[in-house]
């Protein structure tokens, strides 16, 4: 159900073709989004070293998960107070867009950003997922854990 992108940097693998097309802009906002994520996590980490950061991003967000992952290191490298993020990995959980039909009640997952019921074809639908944009959790290294 969920797709994930992970890694600190390097070649973005497995980009979704349809979403690659949207990178027409000369600059990307993923970097400033990563800065927002870094601020949030650094605040909650309270000095503890962070190893992984988990995001949940809906498919209807104009955000490319692999670009987020690529920008992550840049975003916190020079940020004050973000030293706890050094070496951390961003993990993006992609949530598909889903609609519920007001006519027939069927829930459909959208492959393209067209708000339409897959069962009866009407556009009289309610969006139930796809706009998520959250820092869900992060992991911090601890000195020792009792087994």
């Amino acid at each position: 159900m969920f797709k994930e992108s992970g890694g600190t940097s390097g070649s973005p693998a497995g980009r979704q073709g349809a979403r690659l097309d949207v990178r027409g802009g000369r600059a990307v906002h993923e970097l400033s989004i990563c800065r927002s994520v870094a601020d949030i996590v650094a605040r909650h980490a309270a000095g503890r070293p962070v190893t992984r950061v988990h995001l949940r991003v809906g498919a209807l967000r104009q955000v490319v998960p692999d670009t987020l992952v690529y920008c992550w290191e840049l975003a916190h490298a020079d940020a004050a107070g973000a030293e706890v993020l050094a070496g951390s990995v961003l993990v993006v959980e992609s949530v598909p867009a889903g609609v519920r039909c007001r006519r027939c009640g069927v829930h459909s997952e959208l492959a393209v950003p067209i708000l339409r019921c897959a069962a009866c074809g009407t556009t009289d639908v309610v969006l139930v997922s796809g706009e998520e944009f959250l820092v869900t959790s992060f992991e911090v290294a601890t000195d020792a854990v009792e087994a």
């Binding site: 989004i33 190893t51 959250l134 820092v135 959790s137 601890t142 854990v145 087994a147």
Partner: peptide, 21 residues
């Protein structure tokens, strides 16, 4: 989760990424 000896702790946040904006 005490059976896992991984030296990591997960912190739940659930905060909107653009919350400050």
């Amino acid at each position: 989760h005490s059976g896992y000896r991984t030296g990591a702790e997960r912190v739940e946040v659930l905060e909107r990424i653009l919350g400050e904006n």
